[in-house]
Write a protein that binds this DNA or RNA. Structure first.
Lengths: 140, 140
DNA sequence: CTGCCTGCAAATAGTTTGCAAGTTA
DNA sequence: TAACTTGCAAACTATTTGCAGGCAG
């Protein structure tokens, strides 16, 4: 898997020290390829690294977010926990199953919409976030 | 102001007991006409009603949400607090200033989009949420 | 007068922080 | 070896809950 090397390389480029914890977090996120909570990541990694702490996971995720390696998003309508997703170039949104929680990515339908709103409101638009909720084929 | 009467009427229709706390919360939300946090509401109301508790505000907001009188939304990108907004018939989204926090409503640009995604993914779409972030004319 | 609502206090969930010891460059 | 990172414990923020007395219907 040369994605592992890419991720290590990416940290070096950004001047972020390469530690076991950071690589394990990033590799897990790359392998799962869906948004995960800090607790998800912690639960999976503590099996192979029992000394790992949830606070370390949070500290590193926050650092990745600051450096635009990862984005932090809300997924569940009724839970206030954050999800984290490895940024791999493509701006997209999410469709979330209300029953089983499955998440699928959606390409962005709002390319010109930002300009339109910018013109209408005189706001300078910086970003937008869209989520759809529904029932997946298995749950509906 | 006959909105006050409307709100009291609405509670009765829904079989929700009319209490001082409930009316004060709803009237404040109607008067402010922008999404508010439970703490915003509590801070404003405790001046005239010092015995009011934040837990009472939360309990009532949750009841209003269950009964579709109020919607619960996330507004701030980096804070995990919920905002609550009185539902007044019109489905809309929000444009939020990243600097001063001002919030303006946007009409929904996604009328057909849900159908399109439903066809593409075979999910049954239940709802969607869109937020734009930017800088308002005063802050940019 | 009965059941729902509130005040009050304490608990919970998610996340952050301070500090000393360990690790990276 | 200097600066950064981690483990660990404790704090913090937003929200919820249990219980006993109070109020609405």
């Amino acid at each position: 898997m040369n994605q592992k090397l890419d991720l290590e390389e990416k940290l070096k480029e950004l001047g972020i020290r390469v530690t076991r914890q950071r690589l394990e977090i990033l590799n897990l996120m790359a392998a799962q390829n869906t948004p995960l909570t800090a607790a998800d990541i912690f639960d999976k990694l503590k099996k192979s690294n029992p000394k790992l702490r949830l606070s370390t996971v949070y500290r590193n995720l926050n650092k990745f977010v600051e450096n635009n390696l990862v984005s932090k998003i809300e997924i569940k309508m009724d839970k206030k926990e954050s999800y984290f997703e490895l940024l791999q170039g493509n701006h997209h949104h999410h469709l979330i199953c209300l029953k089983c929680g499955k998440i699928i990515p959606l390409k962005c339908p709002l390319k010109n919409y930002e300009n339109k709103i910018s013109d209408q409101t005189n706001y300078q638009i910086v970003e937008h976030r869209l989520k759809l909720y529904g029932l997946c084929p298995d749950c509906k």
